[in-house]
Design a protein around this nucleic acid. Structure first.
Lengths: 130, 130
DNA sequence: GGTTGCGTTGACGTTGGCGGCAAGGTTTAG
DNA sequence: CTAAACCTTGCCGCCAACGTCAACGCAACC
């Protein structure tokens, strides 16, 4: 199939597919007139790319998964390089969750103090009995 | 004080201070020769900016906090606009924590399956008595 | 043979918080 | 007088995953 059809079936754009190709993730052959020709397996590859991007992977991280699929595996996850990336990403996410958690606490406290402060000011303004 | 001194005392760069000024966060007066002159209060402002940036705020989000300080409040948090931003940011962080949590679960499962798959393959390769 | 709708490459724009450099003016110390 | 150390404005670069446009070629239909 050609680029427009693959783009539509993958739910993305031709520009995106060319971008992936430029970064070595997708490899179409060319027809006589220079058009890109993709076979069915590439649809799977593009889906893999998209779903990994969606959970925060970068294109460089994704490369091993694509290679794994291309090597004939049912899943892109099972090859050693993919597993290594999965481990690293899990660690990154855990790390980020920690940092985000402490940011959350800080925000929560800051908000609580700000509101308390405002209510106190309000009381002073309207007098202690107000 | 001039830009170099403020930069050093605030632990940042002159470039950064000019950037904040270009975005309306810091307002030095000028000396006769055109040099930027900052008073002591600006040091506090820059610290506020930096600490808010550090927890993930954008410069636009920070503007109300600076205005609050400039209005004479002890803390940049207590003004209504600041509180509104704090609320919004807390909601954003909660949202992001949720999404990151589900990404984490997905990664965890994916990793677990990949490893199980590999061990199974290993056993098949070396025979069931493995 | 003209229109329409595919495809191609190439290049610039986006977002944010700066870093770094150029090309000059100012001030200060020696 | 000069060199060093400050300051000024202005502009390009960076990162990532594309969007968008330009200018063109190819294919198909009427």
């Amino acid at each position: 199939m050609r680029i427009g059809e693959l783009a539509e079936r993958a739910g993305t754009s031709a520009r995106t597919l060319r971008y992936y190709e430029a970064h070595g993730l997708v490899r179409p052959r060319r027809s006589a007139n220079g058009y890109r020709i993709y076979d069915e397996a590439e649809l799977r590859v593009v889906h893999e790319i998209r779903s990994l991007l969606a959970i925060g992977f970068g294109l460089d991280d994704i490369r091993p998964f694509v290679a794994c699929l291309r090597a004939g595996h049912d899943s892109g996850d099972v090859c050693p390089d993919s597993v290594a990336v999965l481990r690293r990403k899990l660690a990154e996410v855990d790390d980020y969750l920690d940092r985000l958690g402490s940011v959350r606490r800080r925000l929560h406290d800051q908000l609580a103090r700000a509101i308390a402060q405002r209510e106190e000011t309000c009381l002073r303004t309207r007098g202690p009995a107000g």
